[in-house]
Amino acid sequence: MTDTAQIFVSEERPIKPAMWRGLRRKCPNCGEGHMFDGYLKVADSCPVCNENLSHHRADDGPAYLTILIVAHILGFGIHFAWSWFRPEPMVMATIFTVGSVALSLFLLPRLKGMIVAIQWAKRMHGFGNSN
């Protein structure tokens, strides 16, 4: 490996700013361009800084984290609602069903953006070859 290649590979990318940018669904490199072309489709490159984002391998990670977070929040909410208010079962089921779908749809693209940003910052899955 040449000296310039070693310098390029050892150049550190800060992970915390990248994670925050990913949570905002922005490019992990510049923080300006949109990371997604649609609801969950990651753009091939950033429209602002032209960073290549096609290397990502988010797979099932965002869905797993979404289920984990939503289940914990709603589990606590169901326990609290039943202990304090004792609503009718159908009312409670309707409210928590709508809440779980809404929270899942809100969190899923944000968590996918965060996972792609972590992969970018750690130079995983081909992100080490780009600036």
Score class of each variant (00 low, 15 high):
P87L: 03
P62F: 05
G128S: 06
M19N: 00
G77E: 01
E88K: 07
G99S: 15
I69Q: 11
A18Y: 00
S100H: 07
D59R: 09
W120M: 05
P89D: 10
P89F: 06
F36E: 02
E32Y: 01
P28A: 09
T66E: 04
E12I: 04
A58D: 08
Q119G: 04
S83L: 14
K16P: 01
N50F: 14
L107H: 05
F106C: 07
S104M: 01
M124P: 07
R25Y: 02
A117P: 03
P17C: 06
D60I: 12
G22I: 07
G22Q: 04
M90F: 05
V9S: 04
T97W: 14
V101Y: 08
P14Y: 03
V9D: 08
E88V: 02
V9I: 07
N52K: 09
P14A: 15
A5R: 13
K41E: 14
T97A: 13
G33M: 10
D3F: 12
R21P: 02
A71M: 13
G22W: 00
S130E: 14
D44L: 14
F106Y: 11
D60L: 13
L68W: 07
R123Y: 01
S54D: 11
W120T: 03
H125T: 13
M1G: 15
T66I: 06
P89W: 02
A43T: 06
L111F: 14
L103R: 10
R24V: 00
S54C: 10
M90C: 00
M124D: 13
G77W: 06
A18C: 06
K41G: 05
T94V: 12
T4E: 14
G77H: 04
A71P: 06
M92N: 09
T97R: 09
Y64C: 11
E12M: 04
W20C: 07
L105Y: 09
I67T: 12
A18Q: 04
D44P: 13
P17V: 02
M19H: 02
